[in-house]
């Protein structure tokens, strides 16, 4: 298998282009998950704890949006950010910023939907106690988010998995520009279509390895945290 051998060589040889691509991919996906968490965690907790007309509808929509097709999100963000679009004045189309926004939009429903489920389940357990302590609505949200923190790590990982693995949005709003907006997934798609299978394979291996390492780290953090906090 000569392709496999060259792929391994690329990775072990520390190819600078490869590292630039890996760095950008991580930077975009981690930023997107952080941004999505800022919106998705409170949104999920809000949906879990507050009763209002149309709540069920919103819960169904958020759940359904977990399966949003990346290319469609990419297209929507493209239209928003293109020169003639409503946010065209920002001039960020085909930049990493646009990629972060697009991926965050993709990840928000995942984080919000899983957070809602987790917080709703925990609320059943905590309701009486927090009511008796007369904990207000805002403090309830922060208390439940904090006490669910170990489960929410898995939620964030699900979001990261989605962001790191998708190719549709970053291809459309990033443009796969060499050295500027090329990520691992867009590079794999490009190299495969060019026929450079060793590079595509190398990138694929790196991507999978990174995802495993990040999950292992998160698992470790969770275990240590649980040991100290019960």
């Amino acid at each position: 298998m000569p392709e496999g051998v060259s792929a391994l060589g690329l990775v072990l040889g520390g190819d600078p282009t490869l590292y630039a691509i890996v760095r950008l991919s991580l930077q975009v996906s981690v930023s997107a998950v952080a941004l999505a968490a800022l919106v998705g965690l409170p949104l999920g907790a809000f949906l879990a704890l507050v009763q209002f007309p149309g709540r069920t509808f919103l819960v169904v929509v958020v759940n359904a949006f977990m399966g949003l097709p990346p290319v469609v999100v990419g297209l929507a963000v493209y239209l928003l950010l293109s020169r003639s679009g409503p946010l065209g004045f920002l001039g960020i189309l085909f930049t990493p910023k646009a990629m972060i926004i697009a991926q965050a939009l993709l990840v928000i429903p995942i984080i919000a939907a899983l957070t809602r489920q987790t917080i709703e389940d925990l609320w059943v357990e905590y309701r009486d106690e927090l009511t008796a302590m007369r904990v207000g609505p805002f403090a309830r949200v922060t208390t439940l988010l904090w006490d669910a923190r170990f489960s929410l790590v898995t939620t964030l990982l699900a979001g990261f998995g989605r962001a790191a693995a998708e190719v549709g949005t970053v291809m459309i709003v990033g443009g796969n520009i060499d050295g500027f907006t090329r990520t691992m997934t867009t590079a794999i798609a490009l190299e495969t279509s060019k026929g450079d299978l060793p590079l595509a394979m190398g990138l694929g291996l790196v991507l999978i390895t990174i995802i495993i390492v990040i999950n292992a780290l998160a698992w470790g953090v969770r275990r240590v945290g649980e040991l100290h906090a019960g």
Binding site: E125, Y126, D128, E129, M133, R134, V135, A139, T143, W146, D147, R149, F150, A229, G230
Partner: peptide
Amino acid sequence: PVMLRRTASANVAYALEAA
């Protein structure tokens, strides 16, 4: 009683804050 996922003293501190 539901024990909050934090230390024993943090549980009491939480109740004090809520009060």
